[in-house]
Computed example of a mutant assay.
Amino acid sequence: MKTNQRFIYIALVLFYVLLSISCSKRQADEIVPQTPVTPGVGTSTVTYTNFTEALIQTKCAGCHTAGRSAAAIWTFNGIASITSNEARIRRVVLETRSMPIGNSLTAAELTSLREWFDNNMPN
């Protein structure tokens, strides 16, 4: 093989390996709301900051960001994109459980997400 052909072959193999790794469907550990500890104050509810943002980032944003296949349906770009698509997200995640693909949310994550929606999506 000529040097240029070898270089192109190695570059293509490397590209394929990197592409394969970046598109994996491995999910993060269960997301649990982090309740801030404030003396004299009761436990807080689930908020975007302490739960929902991390859940969406790890379970949804892999497919629902600009340039990805599911971005045509819904694109995650912060809390505004969630609140403006609340009905759609509720339906496919909490009711039909067709998202995320493979139904990878735990019962605790589903409960916390439902609580967040039911409490008017606190920030």
Rank of each mutant, 00 (worst) to 15 (best):
M1H: 15
N4T: 12
I8M: 07
I8N: 03
Y9T: 12
V13Y: 06
L19D: 15
I21T: 02
C23W: 09
R26T: 08
R26F: 11
Q27T: 11
Q27H: 03
D29S: 04
E30H: 06
E30S: 06
V32Y: 05
P33R: 02
T35F: 11
V37G: 02
V37D: 00
T38W: 09
P39K: 06
G42E: 04
T45E: 07
Y48F: 14
T49E: 11
T49R: 12
N50A: 03
N50F: 02
F51G: 00
T52F: 04
A54V: 05
I56S: 06
T58V: 06
T58M: 08
C63I: 08
C63Q: 09
H64M: 13
T65C: 05
A71K: 02
G78V: 03
I82F: 07
S84D: 12
S84A: 10
E86A: 15
A87L: 11
V92W: 07
V92P: 01
V93C: 03
L94N: 02
E95W: 00
T96N: 07
T96S: 13
M99G: 03
N103Y: 01
N103M: 02
S104K: 12
T106S: 15
T106P: 00
A107L: 10
T111L: 10
E115D: 06
F117A: 06
N120I: 01
M121Y: 01
P122D: 09
P122R: 10
P122Y: 06
N123F: 13
